[in-house]
Nucleic acid binder design. Sequence first.
DNA 1: TCTAATATTAAGCAACTGCTCAACATTTGT
DNA 2: ACAAATGTTGAGCAGTTGCTTAATATTAGA
Lengths: 194, 194
Amino acid sequence: MTKKEEQYKMRKWQILDIALNHFIQFGYYGTSTRKIAEEAGISSGLMFHYFPNKLALYESLVEIGCEKLTIDSGEGESPLLFFERQVEWFLSVATQNNFASRMFVFMGLVAINAKDISERVAQMMREHDVETMSVPYIEKGQELGVIRQGDPLTLSVLFYSSIQGFAETLVARDNLKLPEKEWFLAILKNDNKE
Amino acid sequence: MTKKEEQYKMRKWQILDIALNHFIQFGYYGTSTRKIAEEAGISSGLMFHYFPNKLALYESLVEIGCEKLTIDSGEGESPLLFFERQVEWFLSVATQNNFASRMFVFMGLVAINAKDISERVAQMMREHDVETMSVPYIEKGQELGVIRQGDPLTLSVLFYSSIQGFAETLVARDNLKLPEKEWFLAILKNDNKE
DNA sequence: TCTAATATTAAGCAACTGCTCAACATTTGT
DNA sequence: ACAAATGTTGAGCAGTTGCTTAATATTAGA
């Protein structure tokens, strides 16, 4: 790797990193490409040498998010173990303030208004729909009697909503302790009371 | 009430209603006062006759949200019944597309980035902090053994996050069925297994 | 070392932003 | 009927937006 290529990659990641913060804090429309460039210490014009336009920069982040946050299916895994792994992964990521954890919050916000930004973003989010991807695990768990009865998609959405909702609150609040993983799993678990 | 006063109130509410949609869809910075005026069928200048500036319009909505979404404390009510009422209220509001349900989503989004918009908004949200207001109910439920052990604030935040998170997803997705209220309450309920 | 490719800047364009203001229209209380 | 108050418009200002482009600095490969 030449010196030029090295700096190219570094700059590109630096821009992505700063842009991620801005998109989280101000949203898509509230984010200014000029201010991103300013914070990166480069001219506004140079930004468009790395990314053709603002939307492409945003879409790059969504694309990275889709790659990084993909769940590995875990062949033949027990349903409850699968969801336990999901919670564990979130809890391990939530406390840090690195790229991954910010990306997590970002993707949650993207999910809310993906369709208002671009068709490409909407489609990426559709293809990377963790909620529907987890439905088979719910159904399997229901057959085994370890997951409560009810519409599988709704259960899945509620489970991930609780994680996502908590992650968002975590950004806004300081000094908030982390929940136990059982608290999330209680949403899904069959209580065997009847 | 004179004809003039009547129209004044109507226009004011019309602007608030349209603004609510725009703030939800585009966020604070992405919302254009001109476009709100256009949608209301009035000139841009007239908007600032009803609201001194964009921030005041936003703050008006937050203020209304704080009033409308306040929980009535329910003297001496059983803790689980209290949270059950919260869920019931959400479920009754969630399906409609009226002012109240949109306001619900709006207030959730405000909570995420209140501090980046104005100190007044931040303070209103602090004073109207349902999560901390519900902590006594959690503690009482823990004493009675009906609510699981653990940090009360964290439990409270997780409970409301799940509602808020689901509400947000509900806006983005169509054809999503509503959860049973027990699914939310399972987060709090003591499972009495040991 | 020289040329082709790339990195980088600064100026600038057209469109949009929140907001003001002078002018005119309408309604109100008298 | 009249004057004060209020409703309403449209032009416009200063600042910002995303983005382009001509000019220059730097690097890479021959």
